[in-house]
Design a protein around this nucleic acid. Structure first.
Length: 522
RNA sequence: GCCCCGUUCGUCUAGUGGCCUAGGACGCCGGCCUCUCACGCCGGUAACAGGGGUUCGACUCCCCUACGGGGCGCCA
């Protein structure tokens, strides 16, 4: 399938006049499709109410879905869901050299895991080159753009001069007003947009407010490269327009692009979408997210044992608020989310808070869902393979039975699994240092021996009955419950920490529990 | 360097001129509960970057400075 995608890229060389492409691409089981034609749009327009927003999430497939992208996707999704709108997914793959099909798969996988759905098939921006070029030609024809024959060396010189004079570089090519007939034959050229040069470009941003850019600072940016490929700033505008996008919600790093893109909208006389540029997310130290810290792929969070609901909750609270609400269900998010409550300053990703949130969601999750998620991450966690090996009908039932007591003390699925290890341990179970110490005292093992017959006499092996028995025993012994319960815990789990011992015994089952106690009694 | 944006407890934030001796959450510290660990509960620590204005009154409005961030590609 990957081949198909690569082939398609090859089939449409980056030169003018490549054949128009139709049909869809398949990749990792996902269709990457063309933007529907105008006729298709008319059809789907009927199903959309006039006021319902159309938003899009447009990641570039240069890597995995990172946390900032995930939040952008979430904001778009929430905005659409809350208003009966549509979320579209477009892969910005025009820079074929830096793209990878693995990245597309990772992004799609990440979105699916986060449970963010979109409408239709993901769209490949690259598949639209011809349309982008057609628009560029139109711009050229109408005099809104021009061919520029400036060489890299000349550009470099301009840059240096600007720097020396300490003024910003705003390229206004001499070719802007030159007669095209003077153009050197066969020389490579780029197509630049003829921008106003004077006045102001105003972005009325839903988050950033009214942002004014002096046009003198906006240069005649390139819309088509010398190899005939359209650039990003042209492609987004054309695609957003063709896809009927009404609201562009993306990171602030695109704010200055919005000013440039606005020039394209104006030149084409197209409706301008509503812009909302949301602040970025920083790493724990306040610095920009980098690969070293913070900028993990979304799948890393899954492997750390976080629930998508918890991640969504944390993500939405980063930069957006609804009064003092902290734990916000997806339904509430959808109802409440709007631009006016988005702040303008960047937030930091806080693992401690995510863990706390995750703990809440683990507590309230459905047993079956939890079980499923647990099994899902088994391949990725330490000792997971071991557990996976021993997971059969019997152990699965035990795990299921233990979940209520385990979930209370776990902040992540990983911790939950860690707490469940006693279920999978094989006799004689190994004691950790603290557990060994609990059984070290002169009385501990003796007590276990004395307790054994009482436990063996129990007919209904259930937590309340077990507790009753042990408590009565402790009383007769004149010992505090802890003096009996702790050695018991050590014998049953090999550790000093576990869910309540009576629950442990119940979950383990009569035979296994008694056998473990016998192993440690003298 | 130039352009744009920001700055409330350690962190995420509430706050839209008087309700603020600034509230919540996470974290941290203490206590209670207790068979361990958690949970839960109670209590504590801790912030309006600095300086000028405007106003009867500024966390809230304006200006400057400092600091932080983003952008300034034939990347997206």
């Amino acid at each position: 399938m990957r081949l198909v995608f690569e082939q398609a890229h090859r089939r449409f060389p980056h030169s003018r006049g490549a054949p128009y492409r139709s049909g869809n691409l398949m990749l990792h089981g996902w269709h990457i499709s063309r933007i529907p034609t105008a006729i298709d749009n008319q059809m789907s327009d009927k199903t959309r109410s006039a006021s319902a927003p159309v938003v899009r999430f447009a990641p570039s497939p240069t890597g995995f879905l990172h946390i900032g992208g995930a939040r952008t996707a979430l904001f778009n999704w929430l905005y659409a869901k809350g208003r009966g709108g549509t979320l579209l997914l477009r892969i910005e793959d025009t820079d074929h050299e830096r793209n990878s099909t693995e990245a597309v798969a990772a992004i799609i996988d990440g979105l699916k895991w986060l449970e963010l759905d979109w409408h239709g098939e993901p769209v490949s921006q690259f598949a639209q080159v011809h349309r982008h070029c057609a628009v560029a030609d139109e711009l050229l024809k109408d005099g809104h753009a021009y061919r520029c024959y400036l060489t890299p060396a000349e550009l470099d010189q301009m840059r240096k001069t600007a720097e020396a004079e300490k003024r910003p570089l705003a390229i206004r090519s001499p070719w802007r007003d030159r007669d095209p007939k003077e153009a050197p034959a066969d020389a490579p050229y780029v197509i630049r947009l003829k921008t106003p040069g004077e006045g102001e470009t105003i972005i009325d941003d839903k988050v950033q407010g009214r942002v004014v850019f002096p046009n003198k600072d906006l240069d005649d940016f390139i819309i088509v490269r010398s190899d005939g490929n359209p650039t990003y700033n042209l492609a987004v505008v054309v695609d957003d327009h063709d896809m009927g996008v009404t609201h562009v919600i993306r990171g602030v790093d695109h704010l200055t692009n919005a000013a440039r893109q606005l020039q394209v909208y104006k030149a084409m006389d197209w409706d301008v979408p509503v812009f909302a540029h949301v602040p970025l997310i920083h790493g724990p130290d306040g610095a920009k997210l980098s690969k070293r810290h913070g900028a993990l792929g979304i799948e890393a969070y899954r492997e750390m044992g976080f629930l998508p609901s918890a991640l969504r909750n944390h993500l939405v609270r980063l930069g957006w608020s609804h009064g003092n609400d902290e734990i916000i269900s997806t339904g509430q998010m959808i109802d409440w989310f709007d631009f006016d409550a988005i702040g303008r300053s960047p937030g930091r990703f806080d693992f401690a808070k995510l863990e706390d949130l995750n703990g809440h969601y683990i507590k309230s999750a459905d047993d079956l869902e939890l079980m499923q998620r647990l099994e899902d991450i088994l391949p990725y966690v330490e000792n997971g393979a071991e557990i996976l090996e021993r997971l059969d009908a019997n152990t699965r039932a035990k795990l299921m039975a233990a979940i209520p007591s385990l979930r209370e003390r776990a902040k992540t699925l990983k911790e939950l699994l860690e707490g469940a290890r006693y279920l999978f341990a094989e006799r004689p179970i190994a004691l950790d240092d603290k557990a060994a110490k609990l059984l070290d005292g002169a009385d501990a093992r003796k007590r276990l021996s004395a307790l054994l017959p009482k436990l063996e006499a129990i007919t209904s092996w259930e937590a309340p009955r077990l507790e009753e028995t042990v408590r009565a025993f402790a009383e007769i012994e004149g010992a505090k419950l802890g003096k009996v319960a702790q050695p018991l815990r050590a014998a049953l789990t090999g550790r000093s920490v576990s869910p309540p011992v009576f629950d442990v015994m119940a979950v383990l089952g009569r035979e296994e529990a008694l056998a473990r106690i016998r192993d440690q009694a003298n």
